[in-house]
Amino acid sequence: MMRAPVAKIIPFSNVDGPGNRTSVFFQGCTFNCLFCHNPETIHLCKSCGICVEKCPAGALSFDASGTVVWNSTACVGCDSCIHVCPHDSSPRVRWLTVEDLMKEIRRSAPYIDGITTSGGECTLQNEFLIELFTEVRKLGKTCLIDSNGSFDFEADPRILTVSEGVMLDVKAADGAWSNILISHTQELVLKNLDYLLSVNKLHEVRTVIFPGRDTENAEAVRTVAGHIGSACPYKIIRYRPFGVRERYQKLLGEFETETEYAERFARLARECGAAKAFVV
């Protein structure tokens, strides 16, 4: 039975696509973005056990095979485990089957328009998602993919046949800043941008605007605007330090991006052709 590591399920979300949606966050990411708001979803747990002794509720323990296991009933949700984890991971990940996940989605299904899978990077679970989306669509609900663009959709477009589309993060223009910011190049992300546009599966694009980074912000926005034009909404997101690892807050900023500053880049995006650019 296929299983996938699920970090969190949010039954009602109004910020992960149109209408009310159930958001499923998968564990594990292909990037390591400095501004990640939930860095505990980046890596899979190594069972090092540092969190076990720090858990004040006794909700973490080792099983016979030496794997760290989480007791959700005993857990008090204090987040001590993710704060002490040196590996940007979490012991509170559940390895679920599609049917496990469907049990929870069926509960929220009457109240939602659809589901959005996110992460981490949910496309790491491509085969699982195909099966999941097939089941969700039987309920008459839509399926959106929230992705960092590190999966080659053109090489394997099967997931797109069972999904309404992709909400793509384009975090930087290609170049040195991209390598610093996300530890990755933008080559595949931009290829995906064009491909998803060409098959009409690009639901929206998002770029985070960092305080004081005039050049880097402008380059990212120009790049996206040049590709998407008015084909899909372009969300200009203000950087917020909440949840960002402390050492990176020092580099990126300890305060959130001012709305007015972000508006400058929304205007720039519109000037460069992204008619549906707006700040959120």
Partner: peptide
């Protein structure tokens, strides 16, 4: 308070 989604950031 109904939050939007506590873990929306990536």
């Amino acid at each position: 308070v109904q939050q939007h989604d506590e873990s929306s950031g990536r």
